[in-house]
Computed example of a mutant assay.
Amino acid sequence: MSTELPLYDTPDFFTAYQRMRADGDGLNEELEQPALRALLPQVTGLDVLDLGCGDGGQAEWLASAGARSVLGVDPSTRMLALARGRAHPCLRYLQATAEELTLPQASLDLVVSSLALHYVPDLPALLARIAQWLRPGGHLVYSVEHPVCTAQQPMNGWLERPEGKVWPVTAYGDESARTQRWFDTDVTKYHYKLSTHVGALCSAGLILRALDEPQPGPDALVRRPDLAAHLIRPPLLLVAARKPCSP
């Protein structure tokens, strides 16, 4: 395992991130989680991997929804300490990065990842490994920051123009690391084109089931008027794929 401190183990970053989640100021509750769950298959009786499980909230939900087993994997000691406070007989956790994780072939029915794969430096290689972990007919569902958001280098965000806010899309074709200042911390993410997401799935032998680019609806805007900026461009990309039932 890398000796570098995982991002979410940095004390100030961890505290600020937990405050954001507790206050409901992120995109998880209003956009990402509803969209992701809408793409999931029926989880009853499935063996599931939650890759980048964070504090275990999603893993606990999968277990409570009837999964036969749920393995939550995350590199952060602090996040896993929170996750292990969520007890369920079919739920267990493992500390590892996505890059170093090894699992038996054809051992899973579902792999889920919530806003974690944009931290992976070689997404196509990981998707190929996930395809090997899935049983025939198994599913992969994941969310990442949208490629129009990660394209900027550095990821500086909105620009103010006389006509209002605009989101610049620059260096879209340069698939490489990006830097972003988030909670007073320099964060590294990786930019991949939409075509790379789809092409990597196909190369891994998976079948694309759905793409989603959720944006706030009227009810969400009533609860969170600040989300209106995300009507200008989609903040998230969600992908659902399936392994063929036979070669």
Results as ranks from 00 to 15, higher is better:
residue 81 A to C: 03
residue 126 L to S: 00
residue 100 E to N: 08
residue 160 E to P: 02
residue 163 E to L: 02
residue 76 S to Q: 04
residue 60 E to C: 11
residue 48 V to L: 13
residue 153 Q to K: 13
residue 162 P to H: 10
residue 91 L to G: 13
residue 97 T to Y: 01
residue 83 A to N: 09
residue 147 P to C: 01
residue 91 L to H: 12
residue 25 D to A: 11
residue 83 A to Q: 07
residue 70 V to D: 13
residue 101 L to E: 05
residue 163 E to P: 00
residue 49 L to Q: 09
residue 157 G to I: 03
residue 90 C to R: 15
residue 41 P to Q: 08
residue 23 D to M: 07
residue 36 L to I: 03
residue 76 S to T: 00
residue 51 L to Q: 02
residue 163 E to M: 01
residue 32 E to N: 12
residue 161 R to A: 10
residue 121 P to V: 03
residue 122 D to K: 02
residue 96 A to C: 04
residue 50 D to M: 06
residue 72 G to D: 01
residue 35 A to F: 02
residue 104 P to G: 00
residue 88 H to A: 15
residue 125 A to N: 11
residue 108 L to H: 09
residue 113 S to A: 04
residue 30 E to F: 12
residue 31 L to Q: 08
residue 161 R to K: 14
residue 164 G to S: 07
residue 95 Q to E: 12
residue 81 A to Y: 04
residue 37 R to N: 09
residue 136 P to T: 05
residue 71 L to S: 09
residue 68 R to E: 10
residue 57 G to M: 09
residue 71 L to A: 10
residue 42 Q to H: 14
residue 100 E to Q: 12
residue 85 G to H: 11
residue 77 T to N: 10
residue 50 D to P: 07
residue 119 Y to R: 04
residue 149 C to L: 12
residue 91 L to Y: 10
residue 113 S to K: 02
residue 75 P to S: 03
residue 152 Q to C: 02
residue 166 V to K: 13
residue 102 T to K: 15
residue 143 S to T: 09
